[in-house]
Design a protein around this nucleic acid. Structure first.
Length: 496
RNA sequence: CGGGACGUGGCGCAGCCUGGUAGCGCACCGGCUUUGGGUGCCGGGGGUCGCCGGUUCGAAUCCGGCCGUCCCGACCA
């Protein structure tokens, strides 16, 4: 068996010649088709999105066309998230895209936070609307209105809703997947009888839905923490966040859960009668994750050769490639696809009439975890060649052992991706004690610094150099109940 | 929205300084050739040079305005 360097080829120049399995001679390897990430990370990100056919810019500034392969990745994320959300007890519903402008203005902080990025419909049906309709930037307000209508008694609580929808926030500086004026997301909205119940539910979503999803499906080791007042959601009393580290050391907020206190309940008169027949305002929460996670996935796992998709959410886990048709190769390849599909593996056949090298590079760009290469030479030996995108290398495997080899590969690849990401994060995380040191550390990664020595003033000062407090954590990695607890640490970094 | 860079076939670029009716690589189409890592050769198609206006006999080229993209900043999932 020959080993090839698939995982981390040298940047810039052409890759060193490699020896494919079964071939006794050197072959010319593909020159890099994308900008190396170490050379220009933003450029690399764009190259990956284009070459892996994930998305295109939309015709209106800030909008995005999600292409089939990119959308397939989102669908995988959706499915996994939806399962977890339902397991947490929330039910899906759908609320309208258009929201009366007056709803937004009912919660002072909320409207203040969102007004700069609202898209407002003033004309429709050929005339000026009596009341403008806001295109939802989030649905707290409409959902609050209806929750108020549905909740009468403590017996109606908790009310746990979720919706999959598009939302619009007019962006000044759009970036595919990370910041677009329209994006797709999931927004959960819940109402509870007590503050404690609301707090625990937001925490539950955060720690038992979001974080496990990111770790177990996306293979991303996120840091869970609490947002500072400055970074908190408009109208929330507390915001929890999952922060992921990207390949360039910058942070990306991958998901947030908010405790909204009684702010929205008050604004929408969401009250209920308690067991003792007293009127009380409900306590609400909201929580969301979006297509931004696709951007996070790219920037967390991608490498010189393109995207690397974690097996659990890979739309195509295994690409079975017909190397050269004839001698029963096509039939054998189809047989392997069927066998894998039967075993529950997302497998696809590649028998395109394009040069083999091109198809192999294409699969690498798209980050397909495993390729099964079937050619006459393999079949003559009763075997196939398995190429690994994440671990790298090619192995010859007997036909009868393909399903097992694939299963093993997919499971170890997930762990390998997670380990890579964790290693990078730990390597780039520095513990410091002064603002200057924090700023220095943030040039290449993240810094942790006692929150007591930062505070709102230090936070504002860091912001001048584009550095933000991503979240507050406790030394043991748990989430502080308040900013004022002892030993609270601030995680500071540059962020997307 | 502020600072910077850039807009020329689908993508990446040259041409602009020194105006004279548009070129290269990749991609695409056809043929042959090859198929175990972006095959090779031959032949093709495709661009009102971002938009609007100005200068000029003549503008991709000079001038002004606008729009867009990317980077940095303020805002954000």
């Amino acid at each position: 068996m020959a080993v090839v360097a698939g995982a981390s080829p040298s940047p810039h120049s052409e890759r060193a010649p490699r020896r494919p399995a079964g071939a006794g001679r050197f072959v010319r390897m593909s020159k890099h088709v994308i900008t190396p990430p170490g050379e220009d990370f933003p450029r690399w990100y764009q190259d990956v999105i284009q070459k892996a056919e994930l998305a295109d810019n939309g015709p209106v500034r800030g909008t995005m066309v999600i292409r089939p392969y990119g959308y397939a990745i989102w669908e995988q994320m959706q499915q996994a998230m939806d399962r977890r959300i339902k397991a947490a007890g929330a039910k899906n519903a759908y609320f309208p895209l258009f929201i009366p402008e007056s709803y937004l203005t009912r919660e002072a902080e909320h409207v203040e936070g969102f007004s700069p990025e609202l898209a407002v419909v003033t004309h429709a049906g050929g005339k000026t609307l009596e009341e403008p309709a806001v295109v939802r930037p989030t649905s707290e307000t409409v959902i609050g209105e209806y929750m108020a209508k549905w909740i009468q008694s403590y017996r109606d609580l908790p009310l746990l809703l979720n919706q999959w929808a598009n939302v619009v926030r007019w962006e000044l500086r759009p970036r595919l997947f990370l910041r677009t004026s329209e994006f797709l997301w999931q927004e959960g909205h819940t109402a509870h009888a007590t503050e404690e119940d609301a707090r625990l539910y937001a925490k539950h979503i955060h720690e038992e839905v979001y974080a496990p999803f990111m770790r177990n499906e996306l293979a991303m080791p996120v840091v869970l923490g609490r947002k500072t007042a400055r970074e908190r959601f408009a109208g929330a009393t507390n915001t929890l966040t999952c922060e992921g580290m990207m390949g360039d050391g910058k942070a990306l907020q991958m998901g947030t859960s908010h405790e909204l206190g009684q702010n929205f309940a008050r604004a929408f008169e969401m009250d209920f009668l308690t067991e003792s027949n007293e009127r009380e305002l409900a306590w609400t929460t909201s929580w969301g994750t979006s297509t931004r996670m696709v951007g996070g996935l790219i920037m967390c796992h991608g490498d010189d050769a393109g995207l690397r998709v974690p097996p659990k959410i890979a739309p195509i886990q295994v690409l079975v490639m017909v190397v050269k048709d004839g001698d029963g190769v096509g039939e054998a390849a189809r047989g392997i696809v069927d066998e894998l599909l039967d075993a529950g593996v997302r497998a696809e056949l590649d028998d395109r009439d394009t040069a083999f090298g091109r198809r192999a590079v294409d699969a690498e760009l798209k980050g397909i975890p495993v390729r099964v290469e079937v050619g006459p030479r393999d079949l003559a030996e009763g075997s196939v060649t398995i190429a690994r995108r994440i671990a790298g290398g090619k192995t010859s495997v007997p036909l009868a052992g393909v399903a097992q080899a694939v299963a093993d590969a997919l499971s170890t690849d997930h762990d390998a991706l997670y380990a890579d990401a964790l290693q990078r994060r730990d390597a780039r995380m520095t513990s410091v004690t002064t603002l200057d040191e924090a700023a220095e550390a943030a040039a290449t990664g993240w810094a942790t610094i006692p929150w007591a020595s930062v505070g709102p003033e230090g936070e504002a000062k860091l912001a001048e150099s584009a550095i933000t407090v991503r979240c507050l954590v406790l030394p043991d990695g748990s989430v502080p109940r308040s900013e004022d607890e002892d030993d609270v640490l601030a995680v500071v970094a540059r962020a997307y």
